[in-house]
Design a protein around this nucleic acid. Structure first.
Length: 493
RNA sequence: GCCGGCGUAGCUCAGUUGGCAGAGCAGCGGACUUUUAAUCCGAAGCGCCUGGGUUCGAGUCCCAGCGCCGGCACCA
């Protein structure tokens, strides 16, 4: 067990030798007047800059170019008059050469007595070793922070999933791949921001603690405000607040932030996750679709995406009903009642969950038979009005709304529509949701009067979209589970 | 919530039909001035997830619990 409360090193009683040895070294350092936790180390260069400065250095060539670097001691080779050490910082790793004829016997001994995992600052001269490795010959060094806990195996790294997730710091310091995934995620998010900022969108923040939740079909977390003595909900979506900003004239807004949905965990689901939603006045869902493609083209180019998905070509587009009909033979448009759709599904040889409503059967068809087939980026258009209470009625198709969802790698990643801006129609939709809620649907959207009032001021026609940052990060970094792109995913206690 | 797999040293992993709990790395002592999973010599380190049970004897078999993983359910 990684964290069973009995780990003696965490309890400070009778520690095993590997821990005790570090404690003893710490005490010895203080005894010798060395501060094991100094305050800083100025003038440090990132390791990749040092590498770049000497990219053309010949094998065996030495220079008198001085560099100052800092990082974690990751490996050590040699114990005699010369030793090699590997130093790792956020940008890479660099070999250090320690020589007794450079440092003197005492400094050499102190350098070699450092533990793997210690944080060290180094001054040295660049050279390329006989084996072709860029190396810094250490002229001086300083302990920057003593490590009291042995790092994971230098070769095998840390592989135990539970330890990696519960102690992500250990995962990050041991596994370069983990660092790369989260750096890519961060670059992806900043590329999204750059795209939207350049297009005249402004980033906003709306309430996470909400008196009424809405904007998605999901069960919320409930919390309590003591001073107000009332329950509040952690938001399941920012949608309704963002559209109120369209009413207010902000016209192009986006929000990146955490959402909370009180559902089970899975490789695709974490109870808190990051979404982005953006809304654009005077656009419809077709404009949103085009912009999504443009956004993803730019983001994947900026992060240097080289995976199996093709974001450069126009995405595959089909209608929801067409996608279902093509893959199952079931026509949801011709079977608008629950029982007749169930009959059609049975006739097609499909399982029909007995308690499912019409919308749930549609969802069943999509998630079981369509979604897994959508590997390359695909947009499915025109959803039934029953499952889309915030989307505008289709301009030409009865019973549908102007809505699309984006799929890739067999996952749903985005949901967009022409936004419903007719307050009377919106009121009716909420009423229908009320009926569903009365029928026991825990995920029906609550009636939001403040939102209706906002629409009554007049909301411009607009297109909007929301998508999951985590799922996109999974796809762009090639990870199979959401836990690998969330730094500290939800775990049992 | 249900079903299945897994849990052994700081890390990575062996452990035979039930018979004294192991290796590599890391750590400790020593040798070594161009190594990069450094090498060599020496001496250490494991309440085997927790709690019961069967047995002369349990890491191993049985039961329960906890955690992780995978699937189902729920869904996003």
């Amino acid at each position: 067990m990684a964290d069973d409360g009995r780990d003696p090193a965490r309890q400070g009683e009778d520690p095993p030798d590997v821990f005790a040895a570090r404690r003893q070294k710490l005490a010895a350092l203080r005894e010798a007047g060395v501060e094991p936790f100094p305050y800083g180390f100025g003038g440090v260069e990132p390791i990749d800059m040092v590498r770049a400065a000497h990219a053309n250095l010949e094998v065996g060539e030495e220079t008198d170019c001085a560099h100052r670097v800092a990082g974690r001691l990751a490996a050590r080779r040699g114990q005699g008059g010369m030793a090699f050490l590997d130093l790792v910082d956020r940008s890479g790793s660099l070999q250090l050469q320690a020589r007794v004829d450079e440092l003197g016997a005492e400094r050499m001994r102190l350098l070699l007595e450092l533990d793997l995992g210690d944080l060290v600052g180094v001054d040295g001269l660049a050279l390329r070793s006989r084996r072709g490795e860029l190396t810094l010959r250490v002229t001086d060094f300083e302990l920057l922070a003593k490590s009291l806990r042995p790092p994971p195996d230098k070769h095998h790294g840390l592989t135990d999933t539970e330890t990696r997730l519960r102690h992500r710091e250990a995962d990050l310091l041991a596994n370069e791949h983990t660092r790369a995934v989260f750096i890519t995620r961060a670059r992806m998010v900043s590329a999204i921001r750059r795209y939207l900022d350049a297009e005249g969108f402004i980033e906003v923040e709306t309430p996470i603690l909400q008196p009424l939740y809405g904007g998605a079909a999901a069960r919320p977390f409930i919390t309590h405000h003591n001073a107000l003595d009332r329950d509040l909900y952690l938001r399941i979506a920012p949608e309704l607040y963002l559209k109120r900003l369209l009413v207010g004239g902000l016209e192009r807004v986006y929000e990146i932030g955490r959402l909370f949905r009180n559902e089970g965990l899975s490789p695709k689901h974490n109870p808190e996750f990051t979404s982005i939603e953006y809304y654009e006045a005077y656009a419809d869902y077709l404009d949103v679709a085009d912009r999504l493609e443009a956004l993803m083209r730019q983001v994947t180019a900026e992060i240097g995406y080289e995976g199996p998905l093709d974001f450069q070509r126009p995405w595959h587009r089909e209608t929801l009903a067409g996608a279902i009909r093509q893959r199952t033979g079931v026509d949801i448009g011709a079977n608008r009642e629950r029982d007749e759709l169930a009959r059609a599904m049975r006739a097609a040889g499909l399982q029909v969950p007995e308690t499912d409503s019409w919308p749930q059967l549609v969802d069943e068809l999509v998630s079981k038979h369509v979604e897994p087939t959508l590997i390359q980026p695909t947009l499915l258009f025109d959803y039934p009005i029953e499952i889309s209470p915030l989307a505008k009625r289709h301009r030409s198709e009865e019973g549908l709304v102007e809505r699309f969802e984006a799929f890739m790698a067999g996952m749903e990643i985005a949901n967009a529509f022409s936004e419903l801006n007719d307050p009377d129609d919106q009121r009716q939709r909420f009423e229908q949701q009320r009926v569903l809620a009365a029928g026991g649907d825990e995920e029906a959207q609550p009636y939001d009067e403040a939102y209706i009032e906002a629409l009554e001021y007049g909301m411009p026609p607009a297109g909007g979209i929301g998508f999951g940052i985590d799922r996109l990060a999974m796809i762009l970094t090639g990870q199979r589970t959401i836990r690998e792109v969330v730094l500290f995913p939800a775990m049992r206690d």
